[in-house]
Simulated scan of single mutants.
Amino acid sequence: MKLEIAQSTPTAASIAMLVQEHYGLSEVVESEFLRRSFNQVYRLGLTDGRSLVARLSAERPRGAPNLQFEAAALEHWAEAGCRVSRCVPTAGGEIAIEVPLPEGPRALMLFEHLPGEFTGDTALDIEAFARGLAVLHTAGESYAGPESAYRLDLDYLLQRPLQGLLRAPTMTAELRPQFEELGERLQAAILALGELSQVLCHGDAHGSNNFIQIDAQARREAVFFDFDEAGPGCLAYELAVYPWNLHPRTVDGVLSDKAAQQWRHFISAYREARPVPDADLAAIPRFMAARQFWLLGEYAGRIPVWGSQAMPTDYLRRQVTMLRKWETLELPL
């Protein structure tokens, strides 16, 4: 009998050997497994002193990784002067290699490693993060490379994740129509706001997919990485990811005074760098809920790897209560 494998985890040493074989780089002398989340991420150290990051793409509910678009968008942003972690090509000029694994081939991409510290909770860090995001959006307006395989629209963020969530083994007949109704009302509320601004999104700009660097003049600058979720989409969604991360995602969660001030620093700095129309501002709280539906769909898609108790029924029940409260959620300005 041949066992089916949901997702295997290669060692850091084996990833180092693959990179050594396929990339025209100096010798890989350090390898470290950094994290296992939606993808698996490794840090590699070279004899020339450089550090690189290898990302082994995992199976996602959306489909195949968006490799061609991601590599081209990163190159465009870098050429426009944005501080981003670019794709490192193979010795043959390819943007990725296929890694043969028991569950089937998976794409491995290599990226520049950027130094720095995660965005802190000081006003200076948050404002640098917001300004950097505005610079990405402005530079993205002139992107003319390969099209993204995915648009960060309501189908991608809400409808498809909802369908995956409804099929989860921990979903119940009682909860299923409640989630469906919440999804329908959320979509209607967003559509009622009219036409919303579109940008080339980072897609996951919650403050921990960028570092803050400080130069010799003590100026802070944001540098960005982890563009696996990048794609064209609503500005309101992009701006909703940070307050979604700040807000307690619990039944009785209330935005703390500290978090509210962090949000004010963020949105004020972004608006100073780049205008945000009123309709987009109004849509941000609704897209916080869309972000939560997206996350629930991702968790449902990871059940073969993480197990059904990564999303138990009592957790889903609490999500219904929370999302009902979020239907009237507002953010301070």
Rank of each mutant, 00 (worst) to 15 (best):
A260F: 12
D153W: 06
Y270H: 13
A134F: 09
L52G: 08
I214T: 15
Y270L: 12
E147P: 07
M311G: 04
A290T: 03
F111E: 02
W306H: 11
L200F: 11
I95D: 10
R36H: 12
Y315S: 13
A13F: 07
G253V: 00
S14T: 10
E127Q: 15
D278G: 03
D153C: 02
V135I: 04
A188I: 09
L154H: 12
H206D: 10
Q198K: 03
A12P: 03
L44K: 05
L18T: 02
R83C: 06
E117Y: 10
R324A: 01
T321V: 04
Q20E: 00
P161F: 04
P146H: 11
G194K: 08
L182K: 10
P285M: 01
A236H: 10
S197W: 02
A130P: 13
A289Q: 07
V41R: 02
A188R: 15
R60C: 06
S197D: 05
S197N: 06
F293K: 06
D314T: 05
Q68R: 14
Y237H: 12
P275E: 08
P304C: 00
M171N: 10
R185M: 03
A6I: 03
L152G: 08
P65N: 13
D155Q: 14
S85A: 15
L162F: 08
L18W: 01
D257C: 10
C82G: 05
L191E: 14
L296I: 08
L18Y: 01
E112Y: 12
R264T: 12
E27A: 02
G207T: 07
L44F: 03
V88M: 03
L186G: 01
R160S: 13
A218I: 09
E4R: 11
H137N: 06
R271Q: 14
A134Q: 14
A91N: 07
M17S: 08
Q20G: 02
T138P: 05
G231V: 07
R151H: 11
L333W: 15
Q68Y: 08
T11Y: 06
Y242N: 06
R131L: 04
A240Y: 06
I212D: 10
F69Q: 15
A96W: 12
W306M: 05
P10A: 01
W244T: 09
L196P: 02
F293I: 03
S268F: 11
V254G: 05
G253R: 04
Q213I: 14
I212Q: 12
L329C: 04
P65C: 08
R286T: 01
L67N: 15
F266D: 13
L157R: 14
A149Y: 13
A91K: 10
Q163A: 13
E174K: 10
W77S: 03
N210Y: 12
S308M: 04
Q261E: 15
G120S: 06
Y270C: 11
Y270W: 14
A128S: 14
H76D: 03
L3K: 15
M171F: 08
A12G: 04
D314S: 05
Y242E: 03
F211A: 06
P89E: 01
I190R: 07
N39E: 07
D155A: 11
V53H: 09
S8W: 01
Y237S: 02
P332W: 11
Q319T: 04
C82R: 09
L165F: 10
